[in-house]
């Protein structure tokens, strides 16, 4: 059932910002070609670069906005009457939302990286591309030589853990907001700010940092915080739900 829940979450999300990603990729091609043929002084080029920057920012911001709205609408709005009538547990509903959000975040990051690569590919001449590829191969060998792969994997794991923690924080804030009838959005915003403040105080007090030395402690802390946020969300949705 988890997979089915995620399927409909992703379908809904991609419908909203799939076209935006296509626009970004198309702009990467055009900008790459402009650079390739030295059309850099053109007004159109300036306009394109500004638009590209704006689209890039939107590509990062929109998923957060859409995931927030999706959780609110799908579980706490009128669609909640459908979601909570499905034969799935509240915990599965929350896990599906977190995993879908994580997938969307990964897709978003991949599209942005792809967009840079496309621009580079179209902007460079054949020789430049050949040199860039050689340099890339050199960096790759260096990474292998000094055995940086475990560090890279650790960094990636940290990034994923932090993203999941951030997502569950948003969901917990929305769930707390649900308890404030008629002021749900305000309640959620205050809850989010309060949680952020509490978290940073806790991190400073305990002296937890995400540096290599204390990575394990940081990871444990992140997992614990994620579990607390998930438990808060579950408790409210399972025991204190009251759809309007």
């Amino acid at each position: 059932m988890l997979g089915k829940l995620m399927k409909y979450d992703l379908m809904s999300a991609m419908r909203s910002f799939g076209p935006l990603y296509l626009v970004l990729l198309a702009m990467s091609v055009v900008i790459g070609l402009f650079i390739r043929f030295n059309v850099t002084e053109n007004f159109l080029m300036t306009f394109l670069i500004i638009s590209y920057g704006v689209t890039m920012i939107v590509c990062w911001v929109v998923p957060i906005v859409i995931l927030t709205l999706r959780f609110k609408k799908n579980l706490l709005g009128d669609e909640g009457y459908l979601s909570f009538a499905l034969p799935v547990s509240t915990f599965e509903q929350i896990v599906a939302k977190v995993l879908s959000a994580l997938i969307i975040t990964v897709i978003c990051a991949a599209v942005v990286i792809l967009s840079f690569l496309i621009t580079g590919f179209f902007a460079a001449s054949f020789d430049q591309l050949r040199i860039a590829l050689q340099q890339l191969a050199g960096i790759f060998h260096e990474v292998l030589d000094v055995n940086l792969i475990p560090q890279l994997l650790k960094g990636l794991a940290m990034l994923i853990l932090s993203s999941v923690q951030f997502i569950t924080q948003i969901y917990a804030a929305l769930a707390i907001g649900h308890l404030f009838k008629d002021h749900e959005t305000l309640g959620a915003a205050i809850a989010f700010i309060a949680m952020s403040f509490l978290l940073s105080t806790l991190v400073n007090t305990l002296g937890i940092e995400s540096v290599a030395g204390s990575a394990g402690i940081y990871a444990l802390f992140t997992v614990a915080v994620t579990a607390v946020f998930t438990a808060v969300t579950w408790f409210i949705l399972d025991r204190n739900l009251n759809l309007g």
């Binding site: 409909y8 809904s12 009128d78 669609e79 009457y81 034969p87």
Partner: peptide
């Protein structure tokens, strides 16, 4: 929930 079919008193289906 597997054996109960529920019709709420509002539009509950996703608009998209």
């Amino acid at each position: 929930k597997k054996i109960v079919s529920y019709l709420p008193d509002r539009n509950f289906l996703p608009e998209w």
